[in-house]
Computed example of a mutant assay.
Amino acid sequence: MSLLYAEVIGDPIAQSKSPVIHGFWLEKLGLSGRYDRHQVPVEGLADYLAQRRADSYWRGCNVTMPHKLAILPLLDRLDPLAERIGAVNTVVREADGTLTGYNTDAAGFLEPLQPLLDQTHLFRMARVLGTGGAARAIVAALAERGFVVVLAGRDPAKARTMLDELTAQDDHHAIDLAHFAQATDFAFDDREQCLDLIVNASPLGMTGQPPLAFDFSHAPPRSVVYDIVTSPLDTPLLQQAREAGFETVDGLSMLIGQADVAFRRFFGATPPRAFDPELRERLTS
Rank of each mutant, 00 (worst) to 15 (best):
I256C: 11
V88H: 05
Q182W: 04
E94F: 04
A141F: 06
L74N: 06
A126H: 02
L233W: 03
R136P: 07
K68W: 03
S32G: 12
V149W: 02
L238P: 04
E165G: 00
T284Q: 14
I21N: 03
P236N: 11
G205I: 04
R145V: 05
N89T: 03
T120I: 11
A187Q: 11
E83A: 15
H121V: 09
L238C: 02
P221A: 15
Y226L: 09
E27M: 03
A70L: 14
A14H: 13
Y226G: 05
Q114S: 12
A95K: 13
D79K: 01
L117P: 04
P156H: 06
E247N: 02
G23L: 09
R59I: 10
G146K: 05
L252M: 03
F147I: 04
R222H: 15
Q51A: 15
Q258C: 09
A95L: 09
L166S: 00
T90R: 07
Q119P: 08
R59L: 14
L78C: 03
G268A: 15
I21C: 05
R282L: 15
P221M: 08
Y48A: 13
G101Q: 06
T235F: 07
R145C: 08
R222F: 14
K28E: 11
N103Y: 10
H38M: 13
D171C: 14
Q114H: 08
D276I: 15
D11Y: 15
D190W: 11
L117Y: 03
Q119T: 14
A201C: 06
T248A: 12
P66Y: 05
A241R: 06
E27T: 04
T98A: 10
R37Q: 15
V229F: 00
R53L: 05
